[in-house]
């Protein structure tokens, strides 16, 4: 199918992009990698008046080090994320989860920031960002602001981005010495997650000092499994302790029912996958 007609802008700087969005009319869509937007437009489930394409905004690409964080440009492609040495060193979870996104062609086009701003509850990267306590740098005509991950994901497909704003970069605290694992559950290779769990675990000897657990597709937004995290903090690094903690993974979640899974099954999966993710992340 062919999308409905639209006006097209291709800025080369963030400032130009913000201007283009501001002058784009009522219904402006921002095109990052386009790997979700273009299919939706082809199906004519979206018919924006203006599309602002960020692919030529060079300043939004790449990963850099900044003090105790790494900063990922919103337009860094999934492919570049997977092979980036800074991500491999400080936040390997991002690469691990990104490798499970769609397929290699889509990963060549799709972007880290685009996936986060899309905020699909079945998308893999929001829960990862949440588990890593990432911060989202948002640009608007009046300047920039930073929003923690916990506040960025507001609702189903809805983020803290206000009209006219752009997500420009994501700051991820360096996680040196942490174990990480992304446990994804889906039916076929290309499919979106039915449920997935991002686990980030810091051990001190025989104990788990700290754990951060992000849940994919367990509600309209990505969630932290706070109950599991509490139970793991200071717990013995044993299979039993992990299993006991993981049993709390479904607390305060509100997953949907769809073709692939009904809510009670998702509750169950969250527990099993959390146990597996934490076990792997803790090196057990």
């Amino acid at each position: 199918m062919i999308p409905a007609p639209f006006a097209y802008a291709r800025p080369t700087t963030v400032d130009e992009a913000l201007q283009a969005v501001a002058s784009g009319g009522e219904d402006v869509k921002i095109l990052a990698g386009g790997q979700s937007l273009i299919p939706v437009m082809r199906l004519r489930l979206a018919a924006p008046e203006t599309v602002v394409d960020l692919t030529k905004v060079a300043e939004l690409r790449g990963v850099r080090e900044e003090g105790d964080a790494i900063v990922v440009g919103a337009m860094t492609t999934h492919s570049d994320v997977i092979t980036d040495p800074l991500i491999a060193r400080y936040a390997a979870l991002i690469a691990a989860a990104t490798e499970t996104v769609a397929d290699r062609q889509v990963r060549h086009r799709g972007t880290f920031g685009g996936a986060l701003a899309h905020a699909d509850p079945a998308g893999d990267l929001p829960a990862v960002a949440l588990a890593l306590d990432a911060e989202f740098v948002i640009a608007g005509l009046s300047g920039r602001r930073t929003v923690p991950a916990a506040e960025f994901f507001v609702d189903y497909l809805t983020t803290a981005l206000e009209e006219g704003e752009l997500l420009v970069e994501i700051r991820v605290p360096k996680h040196e010495g942490w174990g990480m694992h992304y446990e994804k559950f889906n039916r076929v290779a290309q499919a979106w997650s039915i449920v997935a769990v991002a686990a980030v675990v810091r051990r001190e000897g025989d104990r788990i000092a700290e754990a951060k657990i992000g849940l994919t597709n367990m509600g309209p937004t990505p969630l932290r499994a706070r109950g599991v995290e509490e139970a793991l903090a200071g717990a013995e690094a044993t299979a039993d302790a992990v299993a006991a903690a993981a049993a709390r993974a479904a607390e305060n979640t509100s997953p949907s029912s769809d073709l692939n899974a009904q809510a009670d099954y998702r509750h169950h999966l969250a527990q099993v996958l959390t146990r597996r993710a934490v076990t792997a992340a803790a090196g057990l």
């Binding site: 790997q35 919103a74 981005l161 704003e165």
Partner: peptide, 8 residues
């Protein structure tokens, strides 16, 4: 409107 601000 929901996903204004970016796409994958």
């Amino acid at each position: 409107d929901a996903s204004l601000g970016g796409e994958l």
